[in-house]
């Protein structure tokens, strides 16, 4: 009986997960938990969606600033471009990040509303970045429409 209750609880917990999205074209779902969805392409490019509960006064501007500070000032990544997404719903950072003796494109979108904070990441080699950028934007748009709006 105890096992059944636990199983039902876990099933219910998984069913109401916040990162249940269809993978965009060229990516497969590699791992999924309640808060993180990891997708990969055949060329080792990676997409990841992370969900966290938002806090009071957690505006898009707040989260954008905290991410920008962490990624540029502490991680040392080079900020190439910063643009808002759907007015104040989110922000997208395009960065260059050193990894394995090379430089990779690393793009991070932060979407927020009163309840949720979604962070969508794309990491790819320079040669294939443009190809995957569309899939990334498709995923960001989907999350915006399904969860943020």
């Amino acid at each position: 009986m105890k096992h059944i209750i636990i199983s039902l609880f876990l099933l219910g917990f998984a069913a109401c997960g916040h990162v249940n999205f269809d993978p965009p074209e060229g990516f497969i779902e590699l791992r999924k938990s309640h808060t993180v969805l990891r997708l990969v392409a055949s060329d080792a490019s990676a997409l990841r969606v992370t969900w966290r509960e938002n806090k009071k006064n957690g505006t898009t501007q707040f989260w954008a600033e905290i991410f920008k500070r962490e990624l540029t000032e502490f991680k040392g990544y080079k900020l190439v471009k910063e643009e808002p997404f759907r007015e104040k719903a989110g922000v997208i950072f395009e960065l260059l990040a050193p990894y394995n003796n090379s430089e990779f494109h690393y793009t991070v979108a932060v979407l927020t509303n009163e309840d949720d904070v979604y962070v969508i990441e794309l990491g790819a080699e320079k040669a294939v970045y443009d190809k995957h950028r569309k899939a990334f934007l498709d995923l960001v748009t989907t999350i915006y429409k399904d969860e943020i709006k």
Partner: peptide
Amino acid sequence: WVKSFDVSNLFGG
């Protein structure tokens, strides 16, 4: 949790 965002974590999963 913001500190865990970096490219090596992304590629390394």
